Amino acid sequence: MFTYETADQKEVRRFRIAQFNGRMATVKAGESTVTGFVRSVLEQESSMPPRWTITIIPSASKEEIKPLRPASRARPFAEDYF
């Protein structure tokens, strides 16, 4: 799980919408980028200005699909046109 803290209300709204709709959200924190499902958005009531803690469950990155064999460079049935 990845925990992210922010005071930006627009960003919090984006995370809440992603959580409600079951969509993935992406967070850039420094040099790292985390993409995953939002688990919780909690407001810290004791802080001023208001701050929120967002918990994201990172998704496994998809590996590139490698073709089973190299594609032919010539178009199939190209000799039929000559």
Score class of each variant (00 low, 15 high):
Ile65Val: 03
Phe15Lys: 00
Val34Trp: 10
Ile57Ser: 04
Gln19Ile: 00
Ala29Ser: 15
Gln9Gly: 05
Ile17Ala: 09
Gly22Trp: 08
Val38Phe: 11
Leu42Arg: 14
Phe15Val: 01
Ser59Lys: 06
Met24Thr: 15
Ile54Ala: 06
Met48Ser: 14
Ile56His: 01
Arg16Asn: 05
Thr53Val: 11
Ser47Cys: 14
Val41Ser: 07
Glu63Met: 02
Glu11Asn: 04
Glu64Leu: 05
Ile65Leu: 02
Ile57Gly: 00
Met24Pro: 14
Gly22Tyr: 03
Ile17Lys: 13
Thr26Val: 12
Ile54Phe: 05
Ser47Val: 15
Glu45Gln: 13
Ile56Lys: 03
Ser32His: 13
Lys28Ala: 12
Arg23Val: 14
Phe20Pro: 09
Ala29Arg: 12
Asp8Arg: 09
Thr35Leu: 13
Asn21Trp: 10
Ile54Lys: 03
Phe20Cys: 11
Leu42Met: 15
Ala60Trp: 07
Phe15Gly: 06
Arg16Gly: 09
Thr35Lys: 13
Arg13Trp: 07
Val34Gly: 05
Lys10Ala: 08
Glu43Cys: 14
Arg39Trp: 15
Pro58Tyr: 02
Asp8Trp: 07
Trp52Val: 07
Val12Arg: 03
Ile54Cys: 03
Val12Met: 02
Val38Cys: 12
Val27His: 03
Ser46Asn: 12
Ile54Trp: 04
Ile65Asp: 00
Val41Asn: 06
Gln9Thr: 08
Ile57Ala: 00
Thr6Ala: 05
Met24Arg: 15
Trp52Phe: 04
Ile17Thr: 10
Pro50Asp: 12
Gln19Pro: 06
Ile56Leu: 02
Ile57Glu: 07
Gln9Pro: 10
Ala60Ile: 04
Arg23Gly: 15
Arg39Asp: 15
Ala25Thr: 05
Glu45Pro: 13
Phe37Gly: 13
Gln19Ala: 04
Arg51Phe: 12
Arg16Phe: 02
Pro58Cys: 00
Val27Met: 05
Pro58Phe: 01
Ser46Ile: 14
Arg13Cys: 10
Pro49Cys: 07
Phe20Thr: 12
Thr26Glu: 14
Ile65Thr: 04
Lys62Ala: 09
Arg16Thr: 07
Ile54Thr: 00
Glu43Met: 14
Ala25Cys: 10
Val12Gln: 01
Val27Glu: 07
Val12Leu: 01
Ala60Gln: 12
Glu64Val: 04
Ser59Gln: 06
Ala7Asp: 09
Thr6Leu: 01
Glu45Cys: 09
Thr53Phe: 06
Ala29Gly: 14
Val34Thr: 12
Ala7Trp: 05
Gly36Ala: 02
Gly30Met: 09
Glu11Ser: 03
Ser61Tyr: 08
Ser59Gly: 10
Gln44Trp: 04
Thr26Ala: 13
Ser61Gln: 04
Asp8Cys: 10
Ser59Ala: 13
Ala18Lys: 06
Ile56Met: 03
Ala7Met: 07
Ile56Arg: 04
Glu11Leu: 11
Val12Trp: 00
Val27Tyr: 02
Thr26Ile: 07
Ser40Tyr: 10
Ala7His: 07
Arg13Leu: 11
Ser46Tyr: 11
Ala18Thr: 08
Arg23Ala: 15
Glu11His: 04
Thr33Lys: 13
Asn21Ala: 13
Phe20Met: 11
Lys62His: 10
Val41Cys: 15
Asp8Asn: 07
Gly30Lys: 08
Phe37Ser: 13
Ser47Asn: 09
